[in-house]
């Protein structure tokens, strides 16, 4: 059976309520923007297939509710995530300060090797900015993660952010795969080898979830 994809990456969007997680995702999945604020209830996801180095990569992106009352539902999804987007609103100081708490959440609930990225959303509204780009960059450096300022409304950097995260996960996955496949080869199950090389990303991906 012809597979519709080569890799499946599960990504998670977290951040305070109202920073625009759903809009970022909506921009990425539908290339559209919705001005009205509809608070996400519990959890939802979107799937988009992208092309990375001639590989079909399916991104299943989980959009979590930022509100505290959904925390129990949303944290359950941390473990399965291979990449996490931390989103704050550049016009909202508090949402930026809360990134620390979200990082702690990740450390507590997600797998250790999860790829993270920091997004300062709503960068199109220059006159209301409360958090400078430098501060965002600095925070990202502190945690050793990548950083981008985005705007779902003006469609700035949204694609780039997801592609970057996906590329990093892919690189990490392939590296792991190499490490994993080498001992297998030496192990002498020659017959299974091609099979494994065809399938492993997913297989491994599953491992990381579980």
């Amino acid at each position: 059976m012809a597979k519709t994809y080569d890799y499946l990456f599960k990504l998670l969007l977290i951040g305070d309520s109202g920073v625009g997680k759903t809009c970022v995702l909506f921009r990425f999945s539908e290339d559209a923007f919705n001005t009205t604020f509809i608070s996400t209830i519990g959890i939802d996801f979107k799937i988009r297939t992208i092309d990375l180095d001639n590989k079909k990569v399916k991104l299943q992106i989980w959009d979590t509710a930022g509100q505290e009352r959904f925390r129990t539902i949303t944290t359950a999804y941390y473990r399965g995530a291979m990449g996490i987007m931390l989103v704050y609103d550049v016009n909202n100081e508090r949402s930026f300060e809360n990134i620390k708490n979200w990082i702690r959440n990740i450390e507590e609930n997600a797998s250790a090797d999860v790829e993270k990225m920091l997004l300062g959303n709503k960068c199109d509204l220059a006159d209301r900015r409360q958090v400078s780009k430098q501060r965002g960059e600095q925070l990202a450096v502190e945690y050793g993660i990548k950083f981008m300022e985005t705007s779902a409304k003006a469609s700035i950097n949204v694609e780039e952010a997801f592609y970057t995260l996906a590329r990093d996960i892919k690189a990490k996955t392939e590296k792991k795969l190499k490490e994993a496949s080498n001992p297998t080869k030496s192990g002498g199950h020659a017959l299974r080898a091609p099979e494994i090389s065809r399938k492993p990303p997913v297989w491994l991906a599953r491992c990381s979830i579980l």
């Binding site: 059976m1 597979k3 519709t4 994809y5 499946l8 599960k10 519990g42 959890i43 996801f45 799937i47 399916k58 299943q60 539902i73 359950a76 999804y77 399965g80 099979e195 399938k199 997913v202 297989w203 991906a205 599953r206 979830i209 579980l210």
Partner: peptide, 29 residues
């Protein structure tokens, strides 16, 4: 659509496929 069975699998993994676990978790919530 995320279904990704290896139809030549010699032995089952011993646990459910991830898309099914995700699906059920999602349904539950």
């Amino acid at each position: 659509e995320l279904e990704n069975y290896d139809w030549n699998l010699a032995e089952p993994q011993g646990h459910a496929s991830s898309f099914i676990t995700d699906l059920i978790a999602f349904l539950q919530s």
